[in-house]
Amino acid sequence: MVQPAQQIAAHHWGMTVDVDRCTGCQACVVACQAENNLPINLEEHFHQKRAFEWIRVERYWEGEFPNIKARFIPILCQHCENAPCEPVCPVYATYHNDQGMNVQVYNRCVGTRYCANGCPYQVRFFNYWEPVWPEALRNQLNPDVTVRSRGVMEKCSFCVQRIRRARIEAKRDGRAVADGEIQPACVQACPTNTLVFGDLNDPNSKVSKLRNGRRAYRLLNDALRTEPNVYYLARVDNDEAEVAHG
């Protein structure tokens, strides 16, 4: 007997990044590494520019000493609606799902790296090595997340394991996923509450309200029309006259 299709709440996951709150402290970066079994970035990986950070904090300088400003901006996979990485994959290892997420399927990936070349945000990473941990450190690995092997691409998944878990639990309890119930590791860790995650389809969610705010913009969207699901809230600075831009 075939059961009727179950009603699946139409979520559309998204994130806001309030740059005005960000201090560049790197708490999100380390929390992500711990949650998602990212390989240890050894010194040589940095030299080769092959270090992994699914979320990173970029820093830009503006102006000259002493009127110089350092600006931080956390960059993670933007989960674009028009993702440049998706059409270039010859094996459909990356695709857009119906919940607004850009998905990477490790099993399908054959490591062409086209997607990384296509990504204007540079948030896709290729496993050039088999990840290794000393035996003792393996105890920490998260059992909910695959340890990616050599030769596949990886990137921010919006902590899909946490989304899955929250949805399963909500369904078990016969309720909807509450706003704020799902916190990717970076969002949970961020001490200044720079990062907010939630359902963009829910007009009352915090993330919906924030992305409709006046300071909201999306990275590179004007130029490339990638339609990211990650919204940035601009840093406030009344000092323009004194700080040289360019």
């Binding site: 820093r59 901006i73 909201a216």
Partner: peptide, 25 residues
């Protein structure tokens, strides 16, 4: 070199108090 700007032209978009991101751009 310093990190490459993600948003061409605006190392990081800044707004004045009360200004919208569009206006700032």
């Amino acid at each position: 070199e310093e990190a490459r700007a993600v948003e061409p032209g605006f190392p990081i978009l800044t707004v004045r108090d009360g200004e919208s991101a569009e206006d700032a751009k």
